[in-house]
């Protein structure tokens, strides 16, 4: 390509990308803008795009009157617990499927991967009854327990653990290290990147989850942030600015987490897709 042609192409590419970014960011930017507008400004005609004055009253209302701290804590507790437990459970299983030979290993693993096509809603109704029978409905555990193990997590960890050289593990065995010790002091440190990937995926997925907490947590004191927000939006449908502040508080933790750990997040998508 000649130089002017190249410049034109470069310009075109970047114009398109900038336009796409503007469209993508706009709803989130407007949410942030509206959340600091004085009450009523976001639902006035003609609409204003930027706040006339910086107003934090909606955040104050959320924190004092509407107990948003409780919902943040609920969400953080549930997402944190699911992340920790599932990291241990999935990494143990993923490591065994990659490196420990036992009868039926390949068949069991293929069977697990096949379950990925079953949509979550299919098991939801009996799962609800099972947890009701176990007395876990309307408790944090009711949300945590079904997330303890995930086929996707096992799969991801296995793919990564496959790259650990067998000779390294055998050397440790010859030195007299037990299998548990090998897992703890050799496998886990080597697999730190994929553990981080899994942690980000699980935490965000659990934080963002809506349908299951909505079904399990009937007591509003136990609600997670998304469920509380959905309820709030029914009661405060007119308070645009308040709702935008609530929405911003809900997405802020995941956006910050993504900004900090996006390398690991994107990695997870790429590893997950290569197999397909």
């Amino acid at each position: 390509m000649s130089t002017p042609q190249k410049m034109l192409a470069t310009l075109g590419i970047h114009l398109l990308l900038v336009a796409a970014v503007c469209l993508t960011i706009f709803p989130l930017a407007w949410m942030a803008m509206a959340s600091v507008m004085p009450a009523g400004e976001a639902s006035a005609y003609p609409m204003s795009w930027v706040p006339s004055a910086l107003s934090l009253e909606h955040y104050r209302a959320l924190f004092s009157r509407l107990e948003v701290v409780r919902y943040i804590m609920n969400s953080a507790l549930i997402a944190g617990a699911v992340t920790l437990i599932s990291l241990v459970v999935n990494s143990m299983a993923g490591y065994a499927f990659a490196k420990l030979s036992f009868p039926g290993r390949e068949r069991v693993f293929r069977g697990l991967v096949a379950t990925l096509v079953v949509p979550g809603q299919v098991t939801m109704l009996p799962l609800f009854m099972l947890l009701k029978y176990l007395g876990l409905i309307n408790s944090y555990w009711g949300v945590i327990v079904p997330g303890m193990a995930s086929v996707f997590g096992i799969f991801l960890f296995r793919q990564y653990a496959l790259s650990i050289p067998d000779s390294l593990l055998d050397a440790a065995r010859i030195d007299g290290a037990g299998e548990w010790r090998i897992y703890r002091s050799i496998v886990l440190p080597l697999c730190k990147p994929i553990l981080l990937t899994l942690a980000v995926f699980t935490f965000m997925g659990t934080w963002n989850d809506f349908m299951w907490p909505l079904v399990v947590l009937t007591d509003s004191r136990l609600h997670t942030l998304p469920v509380a927000l959905a309820n709030l939006s029914g009661e405060h449908v007119q308070d645009t600015e308040l709702m935008m502040a609530g929405a911003l508080l809900t997405v802020l933790p995941v956006i910050v987490l993504y900004a900090l750990l996006q390398r690991y997040y994107i990695e997870g998508i790429m590893v997950g897709s290569i197999k397909g």
């Binding site: 993508t24 934080w207 963002n208 998304p226 935008m244 609530g246």
Partner: peptide
């Protein structure tokens, strides 16, 4: 960015 956001929150927006 939209992928990581909470569906309920952006639905409200």
């Amino acid at each position: 960015l939209p992928v990581v956001t909470t569906l309920v929150a952006v639905a409200v927006v």
